[in-house]
Amino acid sequence: MIGARLRTARKAAGVTQARVAAVLELSQSTVTKIEKGQTTISADNLGKLVEFLGVDEATAAELRKFSEADAAERQRSRRPAGPLWFGDIPDLERRAREIRSWTGERLPGVLQSEQYMRALFQGRANVDDLVEARKDRQRLFDHEGIREFLLSESALDRVRATADPLMALDQVQHLLKCGELAGVAIRIVPYAADLYVAPDFTILRLDEGDRVYVEYQSGKLLLHKHKDVREHWDAWAVLDELALPVEESARLLAGIRDRLDAGLAGQA
Rank of each mutant, 00 (worst) to 15 (best):
R137D: 06
F149W: 01
I34D: 00
I99S: 11
L222R: 00
G123H: 07
V50G: 04
D157L: 13
D88V: 02
R187I: 01
V212M: 07
V15I: 15
K11V: 11
P90E: 12
A243Q: 14
K48D: 04
V172Y: 04
R7L: 05
A119Y: 01
A268H: 15
T30R: 03
L120T: 05
R94D: 07
L92F: 14
P245H: 06
T30M: 05
A96S: 08
S77Q: 15
Q115D: 15
L206Y: 00
K177N: 13
Y191C: 08
A125G: 01
A163D: 14
L130Q: 14
A58H: 03
A18K: 14
L151C: 05
R158C: 06
L156I: 12
M167F: 10
R211E: 08
V184Q: 00
A43M: 06
D228C: 03
S113R: 08
G104C: 13
I188S: 03
P108H: 12
L111E: 02
S113Y: 00
L175E: 00
K33A: 14
G209L: 14
F86Q: 11
D234N: 13
R211H: 08
L169I: 11
A81F: 11
R251Q: 15
L204F: 13
D210F: 13
Q28C: 01
V214C: 09
V131L: 01
T8V: 13
R251E: 14
I188H: 06
D157F: 11
Q122H: 13
I146F: 08
I186K: 01
P165F: 12
E241V: 11
T32S: 11
I34A: 00
E247T: 13
V23K: 09
L222S: 06
L92Y: 11
K33V: 07
A192W: 05
D91E: 15
R79Q: 15
G14A: 04
Q122V: 03
V246L: 09
L223A: 11
A268G: 15
R160N: 00
E68S: 14
K177H: 14
G47T: 10
A9Q: 08
G104V: 09
L181R: 15
G219L: 11
G47D: 03
E73A: 15
R259Y: 02
T59N: 00
T30C: 03
L6S: 04
E148L: 09
P165N: 10
A193H: 12
A168N: 09
L195H: 02
R10M: 02
L221Q: 10
H224M: 09
N126G: 12
R118S: 03
L120A: 09
A125H: 13
R251I: 10
K220V: 08
S67K: 10
V15W: 05
Q138I: 01
L24V: 03
W102N: 01
L92P: 03
T103Y: 09
T39S: 07
E148D: 09
P245F: 05
F86P: 01
A163V: 04
V23P: 04
D261A: 15
